[in-house]
């Protein structure tokens, strides 16, 4: 097919502003992370004049970044692992069984996507406090367990929907054949469905991890100084007297690298999984 000249011109007229808009913050983040503090306190410099890597060393001392990093890692990895396992079972049931309550279950799960997080935050806060009071020790409120439980549930609805769409695309003959051969329902799931659904599972895992790693609202109320995650911890680079912009940028860069790299490596799966429901 021929591309008209007008289209080729229009392409760059549209794309160049979008590239600048998208890349500008990334440029600011990377270059500012390599400037000394005085250079980010004065007028903005387009190019770093006094190049330094000191901010990348200082970030670990100014605030307990390593601890926040570890907390975020524990919470995100656990939330992702549990969420993926629970979503696999639930989506298998939705995709392969017709049972009473299936419609209600899918409906409720999907409709939770509509409600604002603040609506859950207040009651959850009170429910967690009271569960702990009943138990007699701190189990959920401002603990990693509480955060993991919350995040894994956040990602469940979308994960279930995405995985069920993906499994719908796997021919039934495959697991029916396994059933005829005498495997149990779980056997068919583990030996037939899981290997075939791997791209979908990777997509769900990436999505869950990104969600947990980036969550702010619940992290701001459901953590304390011991369980603080990156999303809230990053704001402590601003003190009463100084805002360490170079260190904030360096820290932002450091905490972004794992997720962005993971995303870029697994992009293919995520796009395929995200669109399994939409394009089918």
């Amino acid at each position: 097919m021929r591309e008209e000249r007008s289209f080729q011109i229009a392409r760059w007229v549209v794309l160049v502003p979008l590239i600048i808009f998208t890349v500008a913050p990334l440029y600011v983040m990377i270059t500012s992370a390599m400037k000394p503090l005085v250079d980010v306190q004065g007028a903005f410099q387009w190019l770093p004049t006094n190049f330094t890597l000191q901010p990348f060393i200082d970030i670990w001392a100014t605030v307990p970044l390593a601890k926040y990093f570890g907390n975020s890692l524990i919470v995100s990895v656990c939330a992702t692992a549990f969420s993926v396992v629970i979503a696999i079972f639930a989506s298998y049931a939705i995709s392969r069984y017709r049972f009473r309550g299936r419609g209600t279950f899918s409906g409720v799960v999907l409709s939770t996507q509509m409600f604002p997080g603040v609506l859950f935050l207040l009651p959850l806060f009170i429910i967690f406090v009271n569960i702990d009071k009943t138990l007699g020790f701190t189990f959920l409120y401002q603990t990693q367990v509480g955060l993991i439980v919350t995040y894994l549930t956040f990602t469940l609805p979308f994960s279930i929907w995405m995985l069920a769409s993906y499994m719908d695309g796997i021919p039934r003959d495959l697991d029916e054949a396994a059933r005829v051969d005498g495997t149990t329902a779980l056997g068919a799931l583990f030996r037939v469905i899981l290997p075939a659904a791997r791209p979908g599972i990777i997509a769900v895992a990436v999505y869950s991890f990104m969600t947990a790693w980036g969550e702010i609202l619940f992290a701001s109320q459901m953590t304390n100084s011991a369980t603080r995650t990156l999303s809230v911890g990053l704001q402590s680079y601003a003190t009463e007297t100084d805002v360490y912009w170079n260190q904030i940028m360096a820290a932002s860069l450091v905490v972004s690298v794992p997720v962005v790299l993971g995303f870029l490596l697994l992009q293919r799966y995520l796009v395929a999984g995200l669109t399994a429901g939409a394009v089918k």
């Binding site: 799960v109 859950f120 009651p123 439980v149 919350t150 549930t153 469940l156």
Partner: peptide, 22 residues
């Protein structure tokens, strides 16, 4: 009962974090 067992964990989590708080 298999499908119910399969969705049970999801139902419990949804109840605890979404439905009851709502």
């Amino acid at each position: 009962w298999t499908p119910y067992l399969l969705i049970l964990p999801a139902v419990l989590m949804e109840l605890l974090i979404h439905v009851i708080p709502m």
